[in-house]
Amino acid sequence: MTRKLTYLNYLKQDLLPTQWCPGCGNGIVLKLACQSLEELNFPKKGTVVVSGIGCAGRSAGFFNLDSVHTAHGRAIPVAEGIKLANEKLNVIVISGDGDLLGIGGNHLLHASRRNTDISIICIANAIYGMTGGQYSPTTELGSKTLTTPSGNTDTPIDVQALIKAHNCFYARSTTYHLKHAMKCMVEALKHRGLSFAEIKTQCITNDGRRRGFKNGYEMLMYYKDNYKINNNSNELKHNEIGIVG
């Protein structure tokens, strides 16, 4: 008999397949989130997932929990409202980098200042994928996108510094480093106070192809080659992944 993937019970499996492109990393993050919820044995009643807009924003709808799909950039204030109105709930935000750091950047700044007890999982694909591939706040310098055809000239946002400035939990990982990424999420979910887990995620359709990658696998290998695990530092360099607590 086929083994059952028990963590999938956290998803509405009749909604699968997801509408994301072939090779998209969002599915990996979704799966890791479910595995983390299972590992911590989060109750289905009593846990709420909140997301914003964009490809990543669609994640909330797949969870077999009460979930809220908010307006663009507004996942964090909605999550804060939920948490502060009922502190017994576990409130998890899963959304993209454009949503959390771009249009919703001000909310992140202030939520971390308030240190509201919510866990944020940021699907950081460094691109606005759903709208066709415009550059996002985490797009690396020199990266070619639809709106930076000769390479991005704007410095990517230093979200680590922003979160750390308010002494909140910050962790970074990639969709290649599955075990590490899951550890980041588990620690983020366990953390009391605001926690932010940034998962570098591949977007092959609207980002990778413009940058010369042929498929999702090549982007995963790029993460493998370019990010080194460093769990013993208070500050991650730009090519390091780790937990800085």
Partner: peptide
């Protein structure tokens, strides 16, 4: 929230 599996969406 937290009592069912509803999805609230815009």
């Amino acid at each position: 929230l937290g009592t069912s599996n509803r999805h609230f969406t815009g």
